[in-house]
Design a protein around this nucleic acid. Sequence first.
DNA 1: AAATCATGGTTTCATTTGAAACCATTTGCA
DNA 2: TGCAAATGGTTTCAAATGAAACCATGATTT
Lengths: 146, 146
Amino acid sequence: MTDHTPLELERFLPYRLSILSNRISRAIAREYQQRFALSMTEWRVIAVLARFDGHGLSAREVAERTEMDKVAVSRALARLVAEKRVARRTHAGDKRRSVLHLTAKGWKIHDVVAPLAREHERALLAELDAEERRVLEQVLDKLAPV
Amino acid sequence: MTDHTPLELERFLPYRLSILSNRISRAIAREYQQRFALSMTEWRVIAVLARFDGHGLSAREVAERTEMDKVAVSRALARLVAEKRVARRTHAGDKRRSVLHLTAKGWKIHDVVAPLAREHERALLAELDAEERRVLEQVLDKLAPV
DNA sequence: AAATCATGGTTTCATTTGAAACCATTTGCA
DNA sequence: TGCAAATGGTTTCAAATGAAACCATGATTT
């Protein structure tokens, strides 16, 4: 007789994490999707470019930072550049690399979406008490160090 | 002067959760993908059918339980039924509904993948101490109640 | 300097996904 | 009863995605 012990999905950590993460991402995404016709990957690229403004990141560096693959980044950038949300130059010393910056248009989007995202996070964390917040941080540091 | 305060992605909760969740899901998926030519959605359906064996779930109920939309479930089921991993009958009292069960073949997959998934979870939790595990549970209960 | 290898980035092709329309059946209600 | 609305599920079409091949440039070896 084989072991049919089923997975208790509702207590299975990877499953619960995935549900939670999807819910949150979708909730935030819903807000900027139609408002700016912005996909989640595009938003992530904008967020990284904002965060490392002044560095003139290359596409590769954006990919690293977002944990997206380079194809996804390339496509997101193509759209962002077409819509003039991101400016793309060629690196002076290395013609393969691009040098990326947010345009005024890109910053405008950032300046709306970033607070909105922060507010979502705040609301989420507000459901937790101090100990829970502290330990959650700690757990994420352990399991998914940046 | 506008507020350009950028999101600190590497400390932003939704972002970190998404990274963590993706990494874990991918790690588990890698193991059963080529071994059984099983997609993540198909595995989820199998897991739910195993968990609620004897109930004769309908597709709708599977969709609810997996938090996948009904189109995804419909497609996963089409493949699973074609490969005879799942048996599908029509509900006696309601000809719209299907009545779903794992076949012997489906159970065989379950009985390999479920322990494998549990082992992944165990390894993950092993990185945490008792307090971290306890609080993590608690946090998930609060943020993503089932 | 030529040949080889590595890197940044894009394109192509097949597959997956999501949204909306759709079909069949059942339910609610005039 | 008969007709509109709701429900379970599938199909269709467009867009998103991933893997591999590709192109151009740079670095390394000889």
